[in-house]
Design a binder for these strands. Structure first.
Lengths: 197, 197
DNA sequence: CGCAGAGTTGACCGATCAGTCAAATCCTTC
DNA sequence: GAAGGATTTGACTGATCGGTCAACTCTGCG
């Protein structure tokens, strides 16, 4: 029951945070929704901030699973990015059906809120974003090796651009309540990379 | 003293919100910092949400001033976008010096938070974003007329892409505490528009 | 001046906040 | 089945939350 309770608290907190900020969700909300008492929450997490960090970590695990699936190397590297965008949009669409509103990026919105909460929180945020960028950078580097992308493209910088584009589109998607806006990323990324295919 | 007090409340609230979310700032924080009593705040604003809306409106006014200056038609249309990006980065840098942390986009972060607060708030968010996009769309349309941008570019869609890119870069800038990241937008935008100059 | 309405005061409300704690219960291991 | 740690309970705290209110002061106008 132990791990189960901890996981349930995180899952419930994650659900409540979607469409709202972490600050808008109280520990009592979380406990009520998880069917758990305050003492249990504070048995597993030293503070509300720590719970927020755990939620971010949980979302990063989810995202990494999606990334690992999309970036399997059975298709050309740039196609993997396309495949990820498609999965990402599908994820947003599912969340929209489930919560009634289009959420922003599950990582980006949390990262943005947490970035002002002290150094350790910002370090976690940076680690997550860099981890994500790594997937893009690797694929872009490989695309360069194949000649799909010009030699003068720096994979790390290009990955930053790609990630930024997706984050921004996710924000607009949330504001306009339309996940499909993010699909624009697929063609944009080819343009940003000056890709030949 | 009347308008003065109202403006001071908005200005203080705007300052406190930077680097934090609206939900993290209490009305008491705002009153204390503005040297004003609760009753005064609620004399001018019917609710905390209304204050949030006023802050968003205030930030939109500021941004519009920057936009109007940058989009003066004394340079080619795409150069106006460059000029805006530069001003935008300068704004972020100033705010970083003033508050100690890099804020996200003053509009984007508020829009993102407010988007889940009911229909009227979302409508305001959409209106602000569309207003912003309008500047880009007009410039892109004009660039098309001059042949700087291919005929098949749809100004409205392209403007969405440009805005998304800037929002995403601003988010990364906040997470990495480095406003200059947004400067990447200048070259990216040319690529997104397949601009010939 | 006198008056009316805008602006301001400061105390106050009930609700809710994050967090605590000692006692009860569960689970594992011997 | 006893021991002992992990987990859960449920009541509790002091602070703070958004918001209200009646009374007070200021200001512009006839």
């Amino acid at each position: 029951m132990a791990r189960d309770t901890r996981d349930r608290i995180i899952a419930v907190a994650r659900d409540l945070v979607h469409g709202a900020s972490l600050a808008e969700v109280s520990t009592e909300d979380v406990c009520r929704a998880a069917g758990v008492h305050k003492g249990s929450l504070y048995h597993f997490f030293p503070s509300k901030e720590a719970l927020g960090g755990a939620v971010l970590e949980h979302n990063w695990d989810m995202m990494r699973a999606v990334l690992d699936e999309a970036f399997a190397d059975d298709v050309p590297p740039l196609d993997r990015i396309d495949r990820f965008v498609t999965s990402f949009v599908r994820m947003l669409t599912l969340m929209r059906e489930r919560f009634g509103v289009t959420p922003g990026c599950p990582l980006g919105t949390l990262v943005s809120e947490v970035a002002g909460h002290g150094d350790e929180a910002r370090a976690q945020a940076g680690r997550v974003l860099n981890g994500w960028m790594g997937y893009f950078a690797t694929a872009i580097s490989e695309a360069k090796g194949r000649g799909d992308v010009p030699e003068d493209i720096d994979p790390s910088t290009a990955a930053t651009r790609v990630l930024a584009l997706m984050q921004g589109l996710a924000l607009l998607a949330k504001a306009h309540d339309d996940p499909d806006l993010v699909l624009l990323a697929r063609s944009d990324i080819r343009l940003l990379l000056r890709a030949s295919r």
